[in-house]
């Protein structure tokens, strides 16, 4: 199997089949919290894509070329969370300096990303699963784009739910969760998508 095809398949698989929110349960907090408006969910999603890809590119070499040769692989979680926290700060400063308009739309979501478990979850499972750098990158891209897709779709649904006539007890979050369940069922249908592809 050529490397390129496997790269693309890994992206699609972590984006759709094993979706980050609907089947791996990373990043439920922003998924429920920042999805009231389409615009804000788009901003959050793009910020997450940005940070996850950068964090993958830093943390994977950090683990493989620094922590593992130094025989301290058990420091991984501490190192990752520090990298992510400082990365979020740096990205914030960088965007503020070079593109104030982008900062205006993304800036408020950046601090929220430090405690978004999607970022740490992807970075940690990359090294826990022993992926190669290319596959780790594919996992990062796929996961973050999957997050973006799902949170935008979900916010579109939620906008309509606001005006729907739901029972009083289900108003707000409960009906949003039920909607997410139906989305998860829909995504379950994608399992085994690659079974037919001969490589």
């Amino acid at each position: 199997m050529s490397t390129f095809i496997s790269f693309v398949l890994a992206i699609i698989s972590s984006m759709l089949i094993d979706n980050v929110v609907l089947s791996r349960f990373y990043g439920i907090c922003p998924f429920l919290g920042v999805s009231r408006k389409v615009k804000s969910s788009l901003g959050m999603g793009i910020a997450v894509v940005f940070v996850i890809i950068l964090a993958t590119c830093i943390c994977w070499p950090l683990y493989t070329y620094v922590l593992e040769p130094a025989e301290i692989p058990f420091m991984d979680t501490v190192a990752y969370i520090l990298v992510i926290a400082s990365l979020v700060q740096l990205v914030g400063l960088f965007i503020k300096k070079y593109s104030p308009s982008l900062y205006k739309s993304l800036g408020i979501y950046l601090p929220l990303i430090t405690t978004n478990c999607a970022v740490l979850g992807v970075v940690q499972s990359n090294t826990d699963q022993g992926l190669t750098f290319l596959n780790a990158l594919a996992n990062g891209i796929g996961t973050s784009v999957g997050f973006l897709v799902v949170i935008v779709v979900f916010s579109c649904i939620r906008v309509r739910l606001e005006s729907a006539n739901t029972p009083k007890a289900f108003k707000g979050l409960p009906i949003a969760l039920i909607t997410a369940a139906i989305m998860a069922i829909a995504f379950m249908g994608l399992q085994g998508l690659f079974s037919g592809i001969k490589l």
């Binding site: 496997s6 398949l9 890994a10 698989s13 699963q129 022993g130 992926l131 190669t132 596959n135 594919a138």
Partner: peptide, 9 residues
Amino acid sequence: ADGSNMYGK
């Protein structure tokens, strides 16, 4: 036997 593919080891 140890091995890994794009979905992990």
